[in-house]
Write a protein that binds this DNA or RNA. Structure first.
Length: 531
RNA sequence: CGGGGCGUGGCGCAGCCCGGUAGCGUACUCGCUUGGGGUGCGAGUGGUCGGCCGUUCAAAUCGGCUCGCCCCGACCA
């Protein structure tokens, strides 16, 4: 699963995406190089990622039992290169990129090229003297990415994102907007703010409940485990329930309180706890900690465990919480009185309807996206652990300030199909189409063969890539296959048309057909291409 | 890893429950036919039923083990 052979047409598309990336990276001042795929463990141990990267890192040993991995990304390798080769600020800023097969042993590969275990990636790395210069390098890449995805014919959006396993201070993801996307994006309907939902900041509520506190009491809630079951049974709104989620960090168990209608955000929780690992506690642990089966955990009387809560819980009065006893909940629970909270923080995911965190007066909306590119401000995370120094103009040793920038090449191609297709097949954007023109002689007659040959040569000479369907198939078969493969133009050469001295030029996107004398086809297509 | 499903000509599937030596569609080959949106008719080629072990006179079918693939989940208590 997640390992594929690229067939001829698909490979042509991949190569075109790569070429666009090369042109724009070169234009932005980045230089192409090629690093090894096999990478020695010692480099990864220096940064700690030999352990931190976990099972996604494919590891192996050579005949001498030395450990290696197949590169999932190349910060370690490029930083090693930098520290060996670069001594002076006069050699900076530097930016290198490569286009190479990457290996990540994904927990679940899916959707073909969208999430493979082996995939082609463009990765780039910048080295600057200081933060200000690094921000310029970052901006150059950000702008280059806009040009790349625009040229690939994609509708996309750059959003603020989490830095995950790569790390660093800030990052943007380039998201192709598509319903089938695995990521949820939130954006302000008033300003320019947009972010991945796992990153999007949520403002604390501005108003607090003013209800008078009622006395705490318990209620029986037989077989009501989920928020939906409990709130329906008690006839209260999910916004009046506080769910208690128990997380294991590997060393510790922590209770996280989230309002019933909100979603906990593991990335934010992990960040707050400074944990390297975070997963929901197993049912066994839940029973040990709460004394009740899963579904009845609550903060009241919960001992020997850290309790943190989302801001929204702070504003609640008289809430419903789990009873730490089978089939039991508390109603009218209040923090400070009935249970203590160590810290209130932003721990939930943003959702549609939340106010924009930029205070631009807007409200957040959500949409789905496919992550095709990601740019990171790394700061000195790697130069520090790997001692990548240079001498500045005062002769002082300084750490390089880094950035890194990735594009999923196959995923970009797949996204283009996602956004450009109809019931009959693919409609390739011209710049990445495997062929520009699909040439369809409808018969094997001497006349059509002669005109097709002439067109094939002329169009080729005009710089157009032509796929000639020379099969002895019926017209319908050729038409359907041409629509499926999705070249932007089809040129149909048939005996009927030739009797009138014309061939037919069809635009795949809108289905418009135009009759032209063969001699005018090349000029016509060149004109359309220019526009 | 948890849950579910599936491995049968190249591809898509039926047969399995109820054991008797493999079938349909498509693709492919040949002949005729047709010839501007997946022609029609006819004749053919091709499968040790994922693998191993077992039960049985007899296994695609029953039992055990194993390998692989697909889907959902792994973050809502």
């Amino acid at each position: 699963a997640g390992i594929y052979t690229y067939l001829p047409l698909g490979l042509r598309v991949i190569r075109k995406v790569e070429q666009i990336i090369r042109e724009e990276m070169n234009r932005a001042g980045s230089q192409e190089l090629l690093m090894p795929i096999a990478s020695p463990a010692e480099l990864w141990r220096e940064t700690g990622r030999w352990n931190f990267y976990g099972k996604e890192l494919i590891r192996f040993k050579d005949r001498h039992e030395r450990e290696f991995c197949l590169g999932p990304t190349h910060e370690e390798v490029i930083t090693d290169l930098f520290r060996r080769e670069v001594r002076s600020y006069r050699q900076m800023p530097l930016n290198f990129y490569q286009i190479q097969t990457k290996f990540r042993d994904e927990i679940r590969p899916r959707f073909g090229l969208m999430r493979g275990r082996e995939f082609i990636m463009k990765d780039a790395y910048s080295f600057d003297q200081d933060e200000a210069s690094a921000r310029l390098s970052y901006q150059k890449m950000y702008d280059a990415y806009h040009r790349i995805f625009t040229r690939c014919g994609l509708t996309f959006r750059a959003v603020e994102a989490d830095t995950g396993l790569i790390g660093g201070s800030s990052s943007h993801e380039f998201m192709v907007l598509a319903e089938t996307g695995e990521n949820t994006i939130v954006y302000s309907d008033a300003g320019t703010y947009a972010a991945n939902v796992e990153q999007a900041e949520v403002l604390p509520p501005t108003e607090t409940d003013t209800e008078a506190l009622r006395p705490l009491h318990t209620v029986q809630t037989p077989r009501c485990r989920t928020v939906e079951e409990v709130t329906r049974f008690l006839n209260v709104s999910p916004a009046h329930l506080v769910k208690t989620l128990l997380y294991s960090t590997g060393t510790d168990t922590v209770a996280v309180l989230i309002r019933g209608d909100h979603e906990a955000n593991a990335v934010k929780i992990q960040r707050l706890l400074l944990a390297t690992n975070l997963e929901l506690a197993s049912p066994t642990v839940v029973e040990q900690v709460t004394g009740a089966p899963v579904g009845f955990a609550g903060p009241v009387g919960l001992k020997h465990i850290r309790i943190i809560a989302d801001h929204a819980v702070n504003a609640l009065r008289n809430a419903v919480v789990g009873g730490n006893q089978n089939d039991t909940h508390y109603v009218d629970a209040n923090w400070g009185r009935d249970f203590q909270v160590e810290q209130f923080a932003d721990l939930r995911s943003a959702c549609a309807g939340d106010p924009s965190p930029r205070k631009d007066g807007g409200t957040l909306k959500t949409t789905k996206g496919i992550e095709v590119g990601h740019v990171f401000m790394l700061g000195t995370k790697y130069s520090e652990t790997m001692k990548a120094f240079f001498l500045d103009r005062h002769g002082k040793e300084c750490l390089a300030v880094m950035g890194c920038y990735g594009i999923g090449v196959g995923r970009t191609a797949a996204s283009a199909i996602e956004q450009n297709h109809d019931a009959k097949g693919i409609i390739w954007p011209f710049p990445i189409a495997p062929f520009h023109v699909h040439l369809l002689p409808l018969t094997q007659s001497a006349q059509t063969t002669q005109v097709a040959t002439q067109l094939y040569n002329e169009l080729g000479a005009a710089g157009l890539e032509v796929l000639w369907d020379d099969r002895d198939e019926r017209a319908g078969v050729k038409f359907n296959d041409a629509d499926l493969m999705g070249a932007p133009f089809q040129v149909v050469v048939g005996d009927k048309g030739l009797a009138e001295g014309v061939v037919e030029v069809k635009t795949r996107k809108d289905g418009v057909k135009l009759k032209l004398p063969p001699a005018q086809v090349a000029a016509h297509l060149i004109r359309i291409r220019a526009s």
